[in-house]
């Protein structure tokens, strides 16, 4: 287990290096910046000072090394637009909100997706299955920003059951719309994969044995079926995390949640390149970590899997 973990962590280094290089080059190749203002151009002297301050006149390789060195020490550079905070402070302020929302969305996805997929498999080819399939089709085809706007329109604007946006922590009703909007697609993805894998498992001999020895139907499905059907589910969880991250860009913007996703969007439109670069790295780290956790969780779900 320890050796496996070390190997995986070492393998993550080249991936991160390439992500960093790619993002760095892209950000530095992009012409223009936040100081390009067609109506009120900055004085050349001011521009020169700004460039000197942010080391933009140094050769590219020097900037590349400098940023990397600082990043390893936890300093992610300044924000071009938000001069009162550096990028590390911005992440500390905005990231926890997105973490909470993302976790809530994942919990929602698991809590609805697994029962939905189980019911669809157990009641295969009945109206219940077709209804579940219908929900899955909606989840696959409708992007989260459309889902968010529709939810806000129906539940906030028309019915007045919920506020249209904002954020007051996990225990406030404001969390509901963004949570469902982000978690809906992951929930349907889970349901779809679970249905397929459960259908396979339910045809196995040990299920027949369990039924034959007189176990109650629900117990057979949950204890013997779902548990064994979960392995393929772990595989898709990596995609789900990516879904939750990119979902936060749109949904946080629409529902005015002050999270890192919304900040990322502001940074793209404000051409705040250091923030873009740092956040791209942050998202890559999260994805790689989650994929690693998923692989490790196989061992918990499936005792046949041993890491050596």
């Amino acid at each position: 287990m320890g050796a496996y973990l070390t190997r995986r962590l070492l393998l993550a280094i080249p991936t991160m290096a390439i992500v960093y290089t790619l993002a760095f080059l892209l950000v530095h190749a992009t012409p223009g910046g936040p100081w390009d203002n067609a109506e009120k151009p900055l004085a050349p002297q001011v521009l020169a000072n700004l460039k000197a301050k942010y080391h933009l006149d140094d050769p590219l390789w020097k900037q590349y090394v400098l940023y990397l060195g600082n990043a390893v020490h936890g300093s992610l550079g300044p924000s071009y637009v938000n001069t009162s905070q550096d990028v590390a402070e911005i992440i500390r302020e905005f990231f926890p909100v997105s973490m909470q929302l993302g976790a809530a969305a994942m919990v929602f996805a698991i809590a609805t997706g697994i029962p939905l997929g189980t019911l669809a498999a157990v009641y295969r080819n009945t109206p219940l299955d077709y209804a579940a399939t219908g929900i899955v089709v909606i989840g696959i085809s409708i992007p989260n920003y459309v889902m968010a706007t529709l939810l806000v329109t129906v539940f906030a604007v028309l019915l007045h059951w919920l506020p249209t946006g904002g954020w007051r922590g996990l225990l406030d009703a404001r969390v509901l719309i963004p949570m469902v909007a982000i978690g809906f697609r992951p929930a349907t993805t889970l349901a779809r994969y679970l249905r397929a894998s459960l259908l396979e498992v339910l045809h196995q001999d040990y299920i027949r044995t369990a039924r034959a020895k007189g176990l109650a139907g629900s117990r057979v499905v949950v204890r013997h079926g779902v548990r064994n059907a979960l392995t393929p589910i772990a595989t898709v969880s990596g995609f789900l995390v990516a879904d939750v991250i990119t979902g936060s860009f749109f949904v946080e913007t629409i529902t005015r949640v002050p999270g890192i996703g919304r900040y990322f969007v502001t940074a793209t439109t404000g051409r705040d390149y250091p923030v873009l670069l740092a956040l791209a790295l942050l998202f890559a780290v999260i994805i790689i970590t989650m994929n690693l956790l998923v692989d490790l969780s196989y061992a918990l779900i499936d005792p046949q899997v041993r890491y050596t």
Binding site: V19, L26, T30, I245, F283
Partner: peptide
């Protein structure tokens, strides 16, 4: 290892 949309957003920027 990188979300598709994130990569596209960077490219599109």
């Amino acid at each position: 290892a990188i979300p598709y949309l994130l990569l596209v957003v960077l490219l599109q920027t």
